[in-house]
Design a protein around this nucleic acid. Sequence first.
DNA 1: GTTTTTACGTCAGTCATGTTGACTTATTTG
DNA 2: CAAATAAGTCAACATGACTGACGTAAAAAC
Lengths: 170, 170
Amino acid sequence: MTDVKTAINPLFLREEELRQAIELLFFAYRDSTAEPDRILAKYNFGRAHHRVIYFVGRNPDLPVSELLRILKITKQSLSRVLSQLVEEGFIEQKPGHHDRRQRLLCLTDKGRNLEQQLSEAQLARFAHAYRAAGAESVVGFRTVLLGLINEEDRERFLADRDSQRLPGEH
Amino acid sequence: MTDVKTAINPLFLREEELRQAIELLFFAYRDSTAEPDRILAKYNFGRAHHRVIYFVGRNPDLPVSELLRILKITKQSLSRVLSQLVEEGFIEQKPGHHDRRQRLLCLTDKGRNLEQQLSEAQLARFAHAYRAAGAESVVGFRTVLLGLINEEDRERFLADRDSQRLPGEH
DNA sequence: GTTTTTACGTCAGTCATGTTGACTTATTTG
DNA sequence: CAAATAAGTCAACATGACTGACGTAAAAAC
């Protein structure tokens, strides 16, 4: 644990640890998206379609503006994939109740079907990692990832997800 | 903690937890790449250039084949960004010692300079998250992320990084 | 020592997904 | 009524993936 480098320069281990974190995040993201990508290819869809399907499935009646905020892309970028998904009957739009300018997005049965297919592989991967790591590790995992996220979404996440276990709560 | 849904269906909480993990990973990746992207734009580079610079900086004398294995992209995809980086003097190539077919990749001084610029923002974000979460959370974070990675790279990671703290070791 | 495999590079074409900028429409709000 | 907002559209462009075909030099296999 205390090798030559850390004895001389205590900051070395810190940077080494942080770089390992960068790499772990990269590899985890790379491998977590691989299976969904293969399924999407059969539908001539890409990762962008997955993100839309995922977040619409997760937040029924999602207004377009909110989806744009989540994805942090331009409306023109979203437009292409979203209109494909609507045309092909995976997503339906309906006017907002309070504000009829809004178009609220929902998955159709067809959309929910694809969503489940996509989630199956991904959930299995996460379930495996969670099971192998154990409950304590999961708390740490969530805490660090939350710390990596910009304040706006971090707060939103903590507010929205009431089943969230906060750092000291376990 | 035990709400109506979990009382009826104990699997609900599990899936809810797993979906939160998926989202945390997405948001963390999205926000961790944002600052580097802004710096890269000044050089007319993209995220692909960052990945090459990062992994070459991290593994001096990296053969092209190994870089391809890490990035999991085609050599034609790599070719565009790599030859740009070589032409503009950020990376240099030299023939392998044992195998002269190989071209080993290294950062030049210019390349190291850019690498440091890019890493600065990213390391600060990770340092902040690590500091806020604490040492125990970091262990959990690493353990879960390792579990998300395909076996090949997981093993490679554990083998390469001798300063790695294994689950029971802390 | 010839053949085969490997490491790397290149040319050409395509597709997915992001960008900017300009403009329209419907609706809500001040 | 005027201004702001939610959403959509058209056009042009950049990045970074992909496939497929082909070339060259060095190593490995026979």
